[in-house]
């Protein structure tokens, strides 16, 4: 995973609640392994009933053609666990999402991809959102995970909390599987213990094994 320390760029506002992953990354039929994730981002939301691009939809506006930061509402990323809903944002350059509240699986999927999920203190969130709307892509915001702050173009600083464990992993870009495999012996010991205590948990088709 690519380490994350600081990020400077355009912040795009999508100040709606309950934006679900079906909206962010629709699943079409004829689904392929290799998708153009930038193409599927808000594939339907981007368009009007007549099929034309909706000029009012933030991701269609020229000033947000290459956003780095997404600013969203409550329960962002609810619904399906599809990770393509994170990859689609990454494909257009987003590396940080600031939301009032994240859906649990979505937040995890962000962390797994080195996309920084930030929730500002409730007291500051509205003021930050106003700054983002007022800036309208005209100047850069800076996100600093080391100092745990976002600096608006106006110079206003917004501090945020971030779990120490996730922060370390993002800052160092640690390989998640590598970290876990340091515990390979403990995993093996668990398997051995359970195989004795509750053999059915360690053998999937136990009825068949019993007959053998």
């Amino acid at each position: 995973m690519e380490p994350f320390a600081r990020l400077r760029g355009v912040a795009v506002p999508l100040l709606e609640d309950d934006v679900n992953t079906d909206q962010i990354a629709p699943v079409g039929n004829g689904h392929k392994i290799d998708q153009d994730y930038a193409e599927i981002l808000f594939m339907r939301r981007r368009r009007l009933d007549n099929g034309a691009l909706d000029p009012e939809f933030p991701f269609n506006k020229p000033q947000f053609a290459r956003p780095s930061i997404l600013v969203a509402g409550r329960n962002f990323g609810c619904g399906s666990s599809r990770e393509s809903a994170v990859w689609a944002f990454m494909a257009v350059g987003v590396r940080c999402i600031v939301a009032r509240v994240f859906a649990d699986i979505y937040r995890e999927n962000c962390l797994q991809n080195g996309v920084l999920p930030i929730t500002l203190p409730e007291a500051d969130a509205a003021r930050f959102e106003q700054r983002v709307v007022a800036t309208d892509g005209g100047a850069d915001f800076e996100v600093d995970l080391v100092a745990q702050k976002i600096t608006a173009p106006s110079g206003d600083v917004f501090n945020f909390d971030f779990p120490a464990a996730d922060r370390l992993r993002l800052l160092e870009g640690l390989d998640d599987i590598g970290l876990t495999l340091k515990h390979a012996d403990e995993i093996a010991a668990h398997e051995k213990r359970v195989a004795g205590q509750s053999p059915w948990q360690q053998r999937a088709d136990i009825a068949r094994y019993e007959q053998e």
């Binding site: 689904h31 392994i33 990770e83 992993r169 876990t180 995993i187």
Partner: peptide
């Protein structure tokens, strides 16, 4: 099974069932 250095618990998974919409990416 263990607690990792970053504070996360490693929780053993007894059964893992995959499906074709997502697993091919992971296999790759």
């Amino acid at each position: 099974v263990a607690r990792r250095v970053d504070g996360r618990d490693l929780v053993y998974i007894d059964r893992h069932v995959l499906h074709e919409l997502h697993a091919p990416h992971a296999f790759r």
